[in-house]
């Protein structure tokens, strides 16, 4: 296993946001975590990135316990993430945004070439010297993704990567996630949009009230009556059946 989580627990005041969760992901694997709002999936995401520290439980990454490490140390061990809020620096130029990711791994002419190559991959080469805030929402999403994968991470964490995207852009994102997975990077997508999860079609875990509610292949999840009830309510399920 690339990363495994053992009995991870986090409480905010009286609310248990992550209740003894066991979960794991292997190298090169792509997985999805879904759940309704407040299910604890964002907390789980933040526990993995290190933004929040777990009350107890362990996170084992590449054989070492990282549950006490600050976010930057986790990033340097090979966990990259893209937050829901795009993760670009609006006041900095597109070039500086990309440089921030890449300058930790190379320098000089190699760095300059890599920045240009990565931006060309993302169709952003012509925006090199523009401020990131001048880009369209979709372009900023791409830049954020490009920055997250720029460090060639072992594990990529994506928080609602298609929020605010058009249908065509969502499809492109699905393709990109599959392409990243094919390079050997493990990808975890945290999402609440069922349509996107369906397009992605990867092993999925459903969170509810801080616990793992169900997990399995996408078709397991989709045919699971309990999951349907969770998403649609009892009446919704009854309507579907009629």
């Amino acid at each position: 296993m690339l990363l495994s989580v053992e009995k991870l627990f986090k409480k905010f005041g009286g609310v248990v946001a992550c209740d003894n969760v066991d979960w794991s992901i292997g190298s090169g694997e792509t997985q999805c975590i879904i759940g309704p709002n407040g299910a604890g999936k964002s907390t789980f995401f933040q526990l993995l990135t290190g933004r929040h520290a777990a009350d107890h439980g362990r996170i084992i990454f590449k054989g070492g316990d990282i549950s006490r490490l600050p976010p930057f140390a986790r990033a340097n061990r090979g966990i990259a993430m893209k937050p829901q809020t795009l993760g670009v620096f609006p006041e900095l130029t597109v070039e500086h945004n990309m440089r921030l990711t890449l300058q930790r791994h190379m320098s000089g002419a190699a760095l300059r070439d890599a920045i240009e190559a990565r931006l060309a991959d993302l169709d952003l080469a012509h925006t090199l010297n523009r401020q990131a805030r001048e880009l369209s929402h979709g372009q900023r999403q791409w830049l954020g993704l490009g920055m997250a994968i720029g460090s060639n991470p072992d594990l990529l964490l994506l928080d609602e990567p298609t929020a605010g995207m058009s249908t065509a852009e969502t499809q492109r994102t699905v393709d990109l996630i599959h392409r990243i997975g094919a390079t050997g990077t493990a990808v975890l997508v945290v999402e609440h949009d069922m349509a996107f999860v369906r397009q992605l079609a990867v092993p999925t875990t459903v969170f509810h009230q801080g616990r793992i509610f169900a997990s399995g292949t996408l078709s397991d999840i989709e045919t699971n009556l309990d999951v349907q009830r969770l998403y649609l309510g009892k009446q919704g399920v009854a309507k579907l059946r009629n």
Partner: peptide
């Protein structure tokens, strides 16, 4: 500059 604009994001990119 990254720390100035968004310290949390800068940290998740590996900056102490």
């Amino acid at each position: 500059a990254a720390v100035r604009e968004d310290p949390d994001r800068a940290e998740t990119l590996g900056y102490d």
